[in-house]
Simulated assay, not measured.
Amino acid sequence: MSAAGTVRPGGRTARTRAKVLQAALEEVGERGFDAVSVEDIAVRAGVHKTTVYRRWETKDRVVAEAFVEAIDSTIALTDTGDIRDDLRVIARTVLVTVQSTAVNAAVRTLMSGGHSSEHVRRFLLGFFDERLVQVTPVIQRAIERGQLPQGTDPVLLYKHAIGPLYYRHFIMADPLTPADAVMTADAALAAARAGTFVLPLASPEVPPSRATHT
């Protein structure tokens, strides 16, 4: 993902930009979106506030660009031929991601009111949507190989494979390890193979002329 219309400068300007974006992540990660101002970001970055306003204009823009810059939205995808191994790799990758400064700041922002910002909201929705787009073919191939039931919903399986990691990290503050990621992936796979994530077929509507009246 890259910020639309963003031209990355070089030299001293690039170093200043990097300091400002890192400062934005750290400020939001520590204090939450609503509590942070452009002035706070500038002070932390060691630059004048006009430098930030001149390039980004608003806090929303600088925070959104900081997220885009910091988070690599590509999941480590594999095609091992075994959905168990594929899901484990995905879960371990997500674990590393949720423990990163950028994602911690992003989630803190979402929970503290950042969703009201169009720039930040667009980034967060795009980030998670892109992840789903990337992982869906992995699950679809497993269905085609007969490793998952026909009709398995890739979105539901993915959410249950990685959702507990987000919950335990951000809500429970558990110290997670790669073994926890493997356990979560295996639990989601067991549920999927039991048909838990198979979407029910829509029931055909009964034509009015054939409906039974009592």
Rank of each mutant, 00 (worst) to 15 (best):
H115G: 11
N104L: 09
L77I: 12
A35P: 00
D34S: 14
E118S: 14
D85G: 01
G32T: 07
V68L: 12
V68H: 09
L87A: 06
A64I: 06
E30N: 11
A91P: 02
R31S: 07
R31T: 02
V36Q: 04
S116W: 06
T109R: 06
D85E: 15
A91C: 10
G114Y: 01
H48A: 15
T97F: 01
L110C: 10
E130W: 12
R84E: 13
V120Y: 00
N104A: 12
R61S: 14
R55T: 13
V120M: 05
R108Y: 00
H48I: 10
W56Q: 05
A24M: 07
V96S: 09
D79Q: 14
Q134P: 06
Q99K: 12
E39D: 09
V96M: 05
S73D: 09
E130I: 14
A23E: 04
G114C: 10
A76G: 08
L21K: 08
E69Y: 06
V47C: 08
E30S: 15
V62K: 04
R141A: 13
H48F: 10
R55I: 11
G114E: 02
V62P: 02
A66F: 04
V62C: 07
V62G: 03
L132Y: 05
V107I: 15
A106E: 04
E65D: 11
V63K: 03
R84F: 00
A35H: 06
A70Q: 03
D85R: 10
L21G: 03
G29P: 04
R121N: 14
I41A: 02
T136W: 01
A106S: 10
E65R: 13
D129N: 15
E39Y: 09
M111K: 15
L110P: 00
T50G: 03
I75Y: 01
R44H: 06
M111H: 12
D40R: 08
V20R: 00
H115Q: 12
V62N: 03
D34I: 04
H119K: 12
L95M: 11
R122W: 09
V133Q: 08
L125V: 14
D72G: 15
R122D: 14
K49S: 10
D79T: 13
L95Q: 09
A105Y: 02
S37H: 04
T78I: 10
A24F: 04
